[in-house]
């Protein structure tokens, strides 16, 4: 195919992508008494329809990434306006402006309309949303995303209404977690892989070995790890659509680094907390160094805070002059 022809084809495909978001909003509103979709529904319905039509993304190049709750749209048309629903407090999205331009007889447009209709018919009620997320996860690039989701579901932090919910409820969390961690894609995420050992040791203690199970600490660590993994995931080649700009990916990589810093602090705080109750933990080969590092870090933070806030009252008064 000649270059110009290829460019023309690509441009035609790009012009179809706004139709995905336009049709998702339109058909969702038709199904829900005129109510605009929550952004999470918009994200999942639109990307699922695109996955069903074209899992490779070559015919329908929708910009999305994988994050903490499945897929998220990366670039929405300017006509998609976000607002907060006053009753539920949830962010929603509506289409304000003219409908997108496209060729009426374009077969891809017809296919998009049809598939969005199918997705909405398959998951017609808000209570079906988590089953929709189940199907979205079938397209996840790493099996770890699915297996770790099951472990999180067992803790009750996600997946209410999922088709896996009942099955997971009777399973042991520790086994689910280990099954998930055995699938962790170490080669793809070497920096995050370094935290898997400490994560496992800390949860072994909070879940199995403290005199009383510490559910809150377990949840905090499980979720902190998920946040960091997903931050790296969306900067990974397989964690986002092909057309995403390099600048955005770079920004995501920077954010992933910050997330890893937070996870290290969280693991350090948890290990410190456990060592108050089980002093031997401070001698542990995996957790000992983490405790030591966190202690040092807390000391440095205290010094920085002391110096940074030494003149806080006067600075506050100076700033208040501008009000």
């Amino acid at each position: 195919m000649r270059r110009q022809e290829r460019i023309a084809n690509w441009a035609a495909k790009l012009s179809v992508t706004p139709v995905v978001w336009f049709e998702t909003i339109k058909q969702y509103k038709e199904r829900h008494d005129g109510n605009a979709p929550p952004t999470k529904s918009l994200n999942k319905i639109g990307t699922l329809a695109a996955f069903r039509i074209d899992p490779s993304g070559s015919r329908l190049p929708l910009d999305y990434s994988w994050y903490r709750y499945g897929t998220v749209a990366e670039r929405l048309p300017s006509e998609v306006v976000r607002f907060e629903d006053p009753d539920s407090g949830q962010p929603c999205a509506d289409w304000k402006g003219p409908r997108p331009d496209f060729q009426q007889d374009d077969p891809l447009v017809a296919r998009v309309r049809e598939e969005i209709g199918h997705v909405i018919a398959d998951y017609p009620e808000d209570s079906d949303f988590e089953r929709l997320v189940d199907e979205v996860y079938e397209f996840a690039p790493f099996p770890f995303q699915r297996s770790y989701r099951l472990a999180r579901m067992r803790l009750g932090v996600t997946g209410h209404g999922s088709r896996f919910e009942n099955e997971v409820r009777v399973r042991d969390f520790w086994e689910l977690l280990n099954a998930a961690l055995s699938e962790f894609p170490e080669q793809d995420f070497p920096q995050v892989a370094l935290t898997v050992g400490p994560l496992r040791e800390i949860i072994k203690l909070t879940w199995n070995q403290l005199p009383s199970r510490d559910l809150d600490a377990t949840k905090a660590v499980v979720e902190g790890f998920w946040d960091t993994f997903c931050s790296f995931l969306r900067a990974h080649d397989l964690g986002h659509s092909k057309g995403l700009g390099s600048e955005r990916i770079h920004q995501r990589a920077v954010e992933a680094g910050w997330s890893l810093d937070r996870l290290r602090d969280l693991l350090g705080d948890m290990a410190l907390r456990i060592s108050d109750r089980i002093p031997d933990v401070a001698e542990d080969a995996t957790l000992g160094p983490i405790i030591e590092n966190r202690r040092k870090d807390i000391e440095e933070q205290s010094t920085a805070l002391e110096q940074g806030l030494a003149a806080a009252d006067e600075i506050r008064r100076l700033i208040a002059q501008g009000d």
Partner: peptide
């Protein structure tokens, strides 16, 4: 910018502010 105004006026620089934000991971 508001904080920088206060720190520069009172302390001559934002050095201690920047160190505090960096160490406490506030960006």
């Amino acid at each position: 910018a508001e904080l920088a105004f206060g720190y520069i006026t009172r302390l001559g620089s934002t050095k201690s502010l920047d160190a505090m934000l960096f160490k406490t991971k506030i960006r």
